[in-house]
Structure formats: structure tokens, C-alpha cells
């Protein structure tokens, strides 16, 4: 069958919202785009463990410590399903990881910011997981089956994390003066990077149009960013905290909040490696991988020996 006909059938499936499955024919560029998007997401989960793991040993109560451990463990689990979804497209997890370690592959730039106080555990859950959910809920309907199914599970757990983060913020904002200060300081630092999580403006986004055509993106970056702001402002009000944007106000005519200009220089700087923790995050991943090499080799060697003994 010639490629034009295959492509026509593929496009018909996309138009009818029929899921594409691993063994189906798909255009090369669709496959590559998915590998890029899913592996970036998987890497974000794995790198995203680091800023939160930074506070597990210092969690202020045993209940919070247990919740933090469970949360970071969930993120590792998300990484696993996403790498598995990616493997259905014909790539190996180890190759994807080596692209992460070399700096070739990207991950969400939000994780290049440091966690400086306990309130950051709240702000990350509330804002970062909140923004992630906005991005990810539409992906539960993504055209590629294994990705969409992985996202259903990821989203369920993320929304639990978001509530947990908000509850940390609520406890702090109803607490002592210094706890309120901690919560406000965390909001000040995480607000703008969270808005940047939706990516460049629609005018600047190079992948949006094609990805929307293929059903692996359902809303534009700016639409999702607006949804996030609209959902989050009332939550900040309920906490009695101030969003660090003097231009933020309700626009009756649009039925949305207007918000101030995003510092895109900062965004592109962080993406290109100049964020406060880019080096630390990649170094930590590389160190874990290199120091674990002997363990992975031993596991393989033992499995081979065992298989040989069984065969003998």
C-alpha cells in the first residue's frame, strides 16, 4: 500500500477521533513528535522528584512526611508509565535517559527552580501540579492510545497532589505570622514560573498547529494559561494570599482575568540552561545514573547466570 493511501487512512482516523495504536501505521513526524512530547513529560516527572525530595527528610510532621514520600513515589510511577508508553513507539528507555543526561532532551523548566522552604511543597502541589493538570486533562483524549491511557492514571493522582498541596498552603496561611510569610513567599516565587509552564505564547509556539491537527494537543498554550489563571485566583483569595501581579484584574467583558506580561527572557534563559538549578538537577540525575551502573550490571549478570542455570 502506498504512503499516500496510508496517510489518508491515518488522517481519517484522526478526524473520526479513533485512537491510533502502536501497531497502526503512522507518519514518521507524528511518531517523532509523540516520542519528543511523551519523553519530555517522563523526564519532567523524574527530574521533578528532586525539588520535592529536597524536603522529605525535613517534613514538619510524620503525616506530612508520609504524604511527601507517597507523592514523590507517584511521580516516579508516572515516569515509569510514560517511558513505557514511549517504548511502544519503538524507542528504549535507556536511550531516552541518555538524551536527558546529555542535556539533549528537555524537561519542564519549572523544576529548575529551587525549593527554599516547606511552603514550596504546598506551592508546588497547588500551582505546579495545578498547571500540569490543566495541560494534562485534555491529553486523556490524545489521539495516541497508550499515551491517553497513561494520562488518565496520571491525572487522577495529580489532582490528589494538587488538593494535598493546597491543603498545605491552607494550613500555613491559617497559621502563625511566620507561616503566612512562608506561604506568601512561596507564592511570590512560584506564580510566574507556573504561568510559564504552559509554554510560549500561541504566536511563538512552533509545534502547536501541527499537534492540534493530530489530536495530541487539544487547546493552545494561551487558552490553557487563561484557564489556569481563572481557576487559581479565587483559590489564592480563599487563602488570603496576594498573587504577585499588579495588573491582575477581572475583565467583565471577556469573562476572564487579565494578567500582566510574562518575563519571556527569564523563560528562554531557564530553558537554555541558565535557570537557578539546571546544573544541579542534571548533575543529580547523572550522578544517580553513573553510581547505579554497577547495580544495573550486577542485576543483568545475575539474571543471565540464573537463566543459564535453569537451561542447564
Amino acid at each position: 500500500m502506498d504512503t499516500a493511501l496510508l496517510e489518508q487512512r491515518f488522517n481519517e482516523k484522526i478526524d473520526r477521533d479513533v485512537r491510533i495504536e502502536p501497531k497502526d501505521w503512522m507518519p514518521d513526524h507524528y511518531r517523532k513528535t509523540l516520542i519528543r512530547q511523551i519523553s519530555q513529560h517522563a523526564h519532567s516527572e523524574i527530574v521533578g522528584m528532586l525539588p520535592e525530595a529536597n524536603w522529605i527528610t525535613r517534613a514538619p510532621s510524620l503525616r506530612r512526611k508520609a504524604a511527601a514520600l507517597a507523592k514523590v513515589q507517584d511521580e516516579a510511577g508516572h515516569g515509569l508509565y510514560l517511558y513505557s508508553a514511549c517504548e511502544t513507539l519503538g524507542v528504549e528507555r535507556d536511550d531516552l535517559l541518555s538524551d536527558l543526561h546529555s542535556g539533549k532532551a528537555k524537561y519542564s523548566s519549572i523544576f529548575n527552580y529551587p525549593t527554599l522552604s516547606w511552603a514550596d511543597m504546598g506551592a508546588i502541589g497547588w500551582l505546579v501540579d495545578g498547571a500540569a493538570i490543566m495541560n494534562q486533562v485534555p491529553l486523556c483524549r490524545a489521539s495516541y492510545g497508550p499515551y491517553a491511557r497513561a494520562m488518565v492514571r496520571v491525572c487522577k493522582e495529580e489532582s490528589f497532589h494538587q488538593r494535598q498541596g493546597y491543603e498545605i498552603m491552607l494550613t500555613l496561611s491559617k497559621g502563625s505570622e511566620v507561616q503566612k510569610k512562608m506561604a506568601q513567599d512561596a507564592l511570590n516565587r512560584w506564580w510566574w514560573p507556573s504561568l510559564m509552564m504552559f509554554g510560549p505564547t500561541d504566536a511563538e509556539s512552533k509545534h502547536t498547529e501541527q499537534s492540534m491537527r493530530w489530536g495530541i494537543k487539544r487547546f493552545t498554550n494561551d487558552e490553557l494559561r487563561q484557564k489556569f489563571v481563572d481557576a487559581t485566583v479565587p483559590q489564592a483569595d480563599l487563602l488570603g494570599l496576594t498573587i504577585p501581579d499588579k495588573d491582575l484584574k477581572w475583565n467583565e467583558e471577556r469573562g476572564h482575568y487579565d494578567f500582566g506580561a510574562i518575563n519571556w527572557d527569564e523563560f528562554f534563559n531557564v530553558i537554555s540552561g541558565n535557570g537557578p538549578c539546571n546544573k544541579q538537577r542534571l548533575d543529580a540525575r547523572n550522578k544517580a545514573w553513573e553510581e547505579g551502573a554497577w547495580v544495573r550490571e550486577a542485576a543483568n549478570a545475575y539474571a543471565e547466570k540464573k537463566a543459564k542455570r535453569k537451561a542447564a
Partner: peptide, 20 residues
């Protein structure tokens, strides 16, 4: 818990966090 995020392979990172 000090291992969390630094394990030799993802599955064992999860195992150590789980035991913790």
C-alpha cells in the same frame, strides 16, 4: 528517604521510597 530521587534505577527508587 534520603535515597528518594537518587536510586540506581527507577524501579528501585520506588522500592526504597515504598519501604521508607
Amino acid at each position: 528517604a534520603e535515597w528518594c530521587g537518587h536510586g540506581p534505577v527507577l524501579e528501585q527508587d520506588i522500592a526504597m521510597t515504598n519501604i521508607s
